[in-house]
Structures are given as C-alpha cells and as structure tokens.
C-alpha cells in the first residue's frame, strides 16, 4: 500500500529526514517511535502534503501512485488521513458542515453521487456512537473550546466519517489521560480492518498497550534505525531511548 524509499526532507534548508525506508501492507499497523526531534512529525507532515517541507530525495508510492505529486486534498481524497498532533480550532465552521463538505468533495473526486442528507445523518449518528463522542461536540464549531482530549477524539471521529485507507496518527496519545486514551484507542481499533492500514507515531509505548502494532520502527536522527515486532516497543520502554542512541552510535 505504501512504499517509502530513501526519503529525504528538509524545512528552511535544514534536513530532518535523512533517508527513510518503510513498506506498509494493507491490514497492517505500524508504530513509529522515537525521541523528540527524531523526525516523527516531519514524516507525518510530508505524508499529508504540508508544503513547508521540501522533499529533496527519494519517493513515496501509495497504491501505485506517486504520492508526492498529489496536492494535500487529493491525498485525502485518495484515502490518506492524518490525525493531527495539534488539531486546529476553526470558529464559525461547524463540524457537521465541515464533514459534509469534505465527504461531498471526496465523493465528487471519485465520481460518486452526492450522499443523501438522510444517509449522511445516519452515518454521523453511527460513527458518533462508534468513537464515543458527545453529540453536543459534533454540532459545535471545529474544535472550538474543546479540551485536548476532545480534540483528539474529534480527530478519530473525522477518521471514522472519512473511512481512510491509510491513517497516520501523529502523537494522538499526547496529553490524554488514561480514560481518554482508552476511548481514542478503542475508536482506532474499531476502525481497523483488512482493507486499511495505520501508522501510529508516538513517543511513548503506553498507546501500544491498547493498539497492538504488527511492526515497530525506531526513528533516530531522521532515519529508521531499528525495526521489529511489538516486543521492540516494550524493550524501548524498559531501556529508554539512550540504548538506541548507544547502539546506533557504537
């Protein structure tokens, strides 16, 4: 589904990603872990199509297409979803209108008929229940006055509504208390299927207690320095990132 080869990316002339290689198949969950500044969020931003980052080398093939040639909105329409680390507040745009517009444009892109209002409302209700988000939140402006946990839950709700093929969760666990974490993880688990794939970007292992990854990769200084199965996350938690640094630098 996703094949990243020798990806180099920089911002303002500073190289952050220094040759990432990653293969993700449909149905898989990959965790990308790493200390602050290792390039985790840059990788997420490059995948989502943030224009501030320059890709200087390498390629990203997504379902046979060159992802880097697609605009951000076309990536989303092709099924790439980024759950933001810091979801933005947009006063004056209701969540419902936002999702209606997004779904409308995605369907038009795919050549599908517009969704009927009734079907949209049914879907809204169903997904609300699935990710356990308060109805009152959904009817408000996007993230306006939401708590940190509510914002993250809203990201997962949007993910549920848009039914992406590739979801990238950027530090979705940061700032969540244990109950919020459990609800968010539950949502993600329910949305997981054989037809989609998930990338979980995280600093800590605790989210991986709830969302079990198939593979764990450790990012350090812009490169994946170690890959393994879910046990690698536990080892990392136990020994800390210093052990990776020592291993790499040795």
């Amino acid at each position: 589904m996703l094949s990243i080869k020798n990806l180099h990316a920089s911002i303002d002339g500073k190289e952050i990603l220094k040759g990432i290689n990653l293969e993700i198949k449909v149905g898989e969950v990959h965790a990308i872990m790493g200390p602050n500044g290792s390039g985790k969020s840059t990788l997420a931003a490059v995948l989502a199509g943030r224009s501030e980052y320059d890709v200087t080398e390498g390629e990203i093939i997504y379902n046979g297409e060159n992802l880097l040639e697609l605009e951000a909105e076309d990536r989303a329409r092709e099924g790439v979803f980024l759950a933001f680390q810091y979801p933005i507040e947009i006063p004056g745009v209701s969540n419902i209108n936002f999702l209606k517009t997004a779904i409308g444009e995605i369907r038009a892109y795919k050549g599908l008929d517009p969704m009927k209002a009734k079907d949209f409302l049914m879907m809204l209700k169903e997904k609300q229940k699935l990710v356990e988000i308060d109805r009152a939140l959904v009817s408000r402006s996007i993230n306006e006055g939401f708590s940190g946990g509510e914002k993250k839950r809203n990201e997962i709700f949007q993910m549920a509504m848009l039914e992406p093929k590739l979801s990238i969760l950027d530090e979705t666990d940061s700032g969540l208390d244990i109950d919020a974490l459990r609800i968010v993880a539950n949502g993600v688990n329910k949305l997981k299927s054989k037809e989609n794939a998930t990338i979980i970007i995280t600093h800590y292992q605790r989210l991986l207690d709830y969302i079990i990854p198939d593979f764990v990769h450790i990012l350090h200084n812009g490169k994946i320095v170690k890959s393994g199965l879910k046990e690698l996350a536990l080892e990392l938690e136990e020994k800390g990132y210093d052990f990776i640094k020592e291993e790499v630098e040795a």
């Binding site: 947009i90 004056g92 745009v93 936002f98 444009e105």
Partner: peptide, 20 residues
C-alpha cells in the same frame, strides 16, 4: 491546510473560512 487534509479543495477551504 487542516481543511485540505480532509479532502476539501483549496477554493472551498477558503470559502468555508470566509463564511466562518
């Protein structure tokens, strides 16, 4: 960018923000 990342084209994204 937030709106575009959800599949909303740049023109409609701007319109939504102007309405807001």
């Amino acid at each position: 960018f937030y709106l575009r990342a959800r599949g909303i084209g740049i023109i409609n994204a701007k319109k939504l923000l102007m309405h807001a």
